[in-house]
Design a protein around this nucleic acid. Structure first.
Lengths: 141, 141
DNA sequence: ATCGTTTCATTCGCATGCTAATGACAAGTC
DNA sequence: GACTTGTCATTAGCATGCGAATGAAACGAT
């Protein structure tokens, strides 16, 4: 009894990787200020939250503590994010978008919409709805 | 005129990243021999092709030359992949699965099926078909 | 045959992304 | 107040993933 062949390009994992690659390429070509997808997500989230500790920011952007640390470090080095210690909790470092860059947030939103649009371009409107809905289902652990 | 809000968790890029994370976690828990997703894909592809140069193997697994090099290096270090120089083309290094490990390929296929099944578990059969089909559409550059 | 173009493999630098371990601090229990 | 537990941030180590540059070798056209 032979089991059906294992076809690599029919597997979710493989397809997810290739789809992510295409999106990453689109992102790199269209994102403002040379931001990477994770840096972009971090800034957008931080703009929403106003002020936030590093670990919480990681949780809200689906990055573990080690990953968010690197992302925030690089954003701080570029001057997008400022840090100040929480007087109530000496462990915490409160993060926020640097005042000089607060005005870029609308540009980020605008670029984000265009990037998503370009990524979803191969799909019809109905397919886009379905695809996002299925992606959400598959993401819920 | 306010544009519709930019909701991070509704964007394809964000959802693709989170879905990939869930799949990676499943993969790590279920994959044999401590193989990573890319190492796994590389071995499966190499098994199909029998013998293959490194760059071509990369193309057939959707990895650029720099990435496939690292993957192959680590597979060689673990003894899964053997190398021999092409007498007809002194630039090329012909790769193949080490004889001692050729027998694991059916196990890889079996594990691959179980990993895909687990990843797709939140979806019905019809949804799985749709999802894979949409993923394919979004991947075609 | 030589020359321009490709291809092969390697390397550097940067950015994710994860696990695991660590030290500092906070908060609750007794 | 001492203890336990949990949280915050950092660090080390490993594995992708990409762009760009390099040197060696093959190949095509003239």
């Amino acid at each position: 009894m032979e089991r059906a062949d294992y076809v690599l390009e029919d597997q979710v994992g493989f397809l997810l990787r290739v789809a992510s690659q295409r999106h990453a390429a689109i992102f790199q070509a269209m994102a403002p200020l040379g931001l990477t997808p994770t840096q972009f997500a971090t800034l957008v989230r931080l703009a929403e939250m106003g002020e936030c500790s590093q670990n919480e920011l990681g949780r809200r952007t689906a990055m573990d503590v080690a990953t968010i640390k690197g992302v925030v470090d690089r954003l701080r080095k570029k001057g997008f994010v400022q840090i100040k210690t929480d007087p109530k909790d000496k462990r915490r470092a409160m993060l926020s978008i640097a005042d000089a860059h607060k005005h870029i947030v609308p540009d980020l939103h605008e670029a984000g919409h265009r990037i998503s649009e370009e990524t979803l371009k191969p799909l019809s409107q109905a397919e886009r709805r379905d695809f996002l809905s299925l992606l959400r289902k598959i993401s819920d652990s």
